[in-house]
């Protein structure tokens, strides 16, 4: 299976993209547009599927951020962990599933399975060969899940989820706020990952970000400077 294109030229050119079966920690300080970068990395394009597990934004905001044309709407699937706290009776839709709160790990696991099954059905209906699914998962954000649940439990839960992503040869992008966490949390969560993207805000120009991408196998792309204009990521020369 081909690597997943990131839409970031320097990564795609050097490494082909993100290798199937990778789980990548996206470590960024607040106000560094980590969500926007995650959306960029998790874009399904016209061949992949994206599952967003969100405890930060509701389904509507996520759908807006992804901005897919209607014809590609079937590529975006969402597990929304916050809307039900405000609209308790909201029913699941085909693409969007709701759980009671970010604490509801039972519900999240079940909805994740349902979505994987749903994607398989969508693919089968389009007569695509089984086993060629390309799935990008975006977790927004580990920091929010950690507010409600102990690290040990979060670690176990995402250990299982990341293994499932690996099994289907997908990729996972996990946002973690680098400021709200201690070393132990970061080092524990890093054990689930085989790659890390670290984002920094440029000291001189706060609209410029600097990311480096490092795989545990030693491959890396150091220092890519970029800025967002709208939702477009523009790499600095």
């Amino acid at each position: 299976m081909d690597p997943f294109k990131t839409g970031i030229r320097k990564i795609d050119e050097k490494m082909g993209g993100i290798l199937p079966g990778s789980n990548v920690l996206l470590l960024a300080p607040p106000f560094a547009d980590a969500e926007r970068l995650a959306v960029h990395l998790a874009q399904p394009g016209n061949s992949d599927y994206t599952i967003v597990l969100s405890a930060d934004q509701d389904a509507q905001e996520i759908a807006m951020d992804f901005g897919l044309p209607e014809s590609e709407g079937h590529r975006l699937w969402i597990i929304d962990c916050i809307t039900k706290t405000m609209v308790p009776t909201i029913p699941d839709g085909e693409q969007v599933k709701y759980v009671g709160s970010p604490v509801d790990l039972t519900g999240i696991g079940i909805k994740f399975t349902k979505i994987l099954n749903g994607i398989q059905r969508t693919e089968a209906a389009r007569n695509n060969l089984p086993g060629t699914l390309r799935i990008r998962v975006c977790v927004n954000s580990l920091s929010s899940f950690l507010i409600y649940t102990r690290l040990e439990v979060i670690y176990r839960f995402f250990h299982i989820l990341s293994a499932r992503i690996r099994r289907v040869n997908g990729i996972g992008i996990y946002i973690l706020n680098s400021e709200g966490v201690d070393e132990k949390t970061i080092s524990t969560l890093k054990q689930l990952m085989n790659g890390m993207i670290e984002v920094k805000v440029d000291a001189a120009d706060p609209t410029v970000r600097d990311l480096c991408y490092q795989m545990t196998n030693g491959e890396s792309v150091p220092s890519i400077r970029y800025r967002f204009s709208g939702n477009d990521l523009a790499e600095e020369p």
Binding site: P88, T89, G100, G107
Partner: peptide, 16 residues
Amino acid sequence: IVPYTSAEAFLSDLST
């Protein structure tokens, strides 16, 4: 006892 959600959301899930 459903500490992870609201009573209303729980009953709504049941009703589906």
